[in-house]
Design a protein around this nucleic acid. Structure first.
Lengths: 103, 103
DNA sequence: CCAACATATAAACACCTATTCATATATCGA
DNA sequence: TCGATATATGAATAGGTGTTTATATGTTGG
């Protein structure tokens, strides 16, 4: 178990940073937040967020590679979901940080 | 109060994304993690992480602007600290996501 | 005031990445 | 199988960004 964050090895922090970087793009963050509400197809995400299906697909591939999103085929479409609940915690904590910061 | 993350306006998610983007750089993330252990001067951060003081100063300016870090003068050096506790939560949650993902 | 130290700032560069456009793959209905 | 739909992939590009180098600002002690 990890007691102090300072014990993190360099390559671990690199992986961590990669995760944060993925959430650091507005389009991708919106996609993740949309997925938190429940599984969605590529097309419905694109429509909701006014993004091209191609762009959404690109982003989803990265999110999948980082285990942030998972996918499952449903007919001719792909249903994407958020892989685990920690992502929701991460985002909610950051929302609190931002809203508290607003004086 | 915010019930669902999907209620976030576009400009709010943009601010959120900016926060994540800041943690998305390895050097900056290491700086933040180092600061979680307690206040540090620019020079000591640079020494600890083997980064140039100039680079550390650059990053700290961005972290300050995002209210992730705060600073206070102590003699001729500046003591930097993490602004609030949510940042620690965010990072710890992400650590859990990453370590769980490793099968 | 002056030298030494600590931090900040500015410009420049190399690298990365988000987006678009075009094309490919895959699934279903007829 | 064929056309239509849904998603994925590849190349190309424009804009952004981390890092370095050089210089400036500010603080302490003499």
């Amino acid at each position: 178990m990890l007691k102090h964050l300072t014990q993190l090895a360099d390559d671990h922090t690199a992986v961590l940073a990669d995760m944060f970087k993925l959430l650091g793009d507005p389009s991708r963050l919106k996609i993740v937040i949309a997925l938190l509400d429940g599984p969605l197809s590529v097309g419905s995400i694109a429509e909701r967020l006014s993004l091209s299906p191609s762009l959404v697909s690109h982003h989803l591939r990265l999110l999948r590679a980082a285990r942030i999103a998972s996918h499952e085929r449903r007919g001719r479409q792909m249903l994407y979901s958020v892989h685990d609940h920690h992502i929701r915690c991460v985002i909610e904590d950051m929302v609190e940080h931002v809203t508290e910061g607003a004086d």
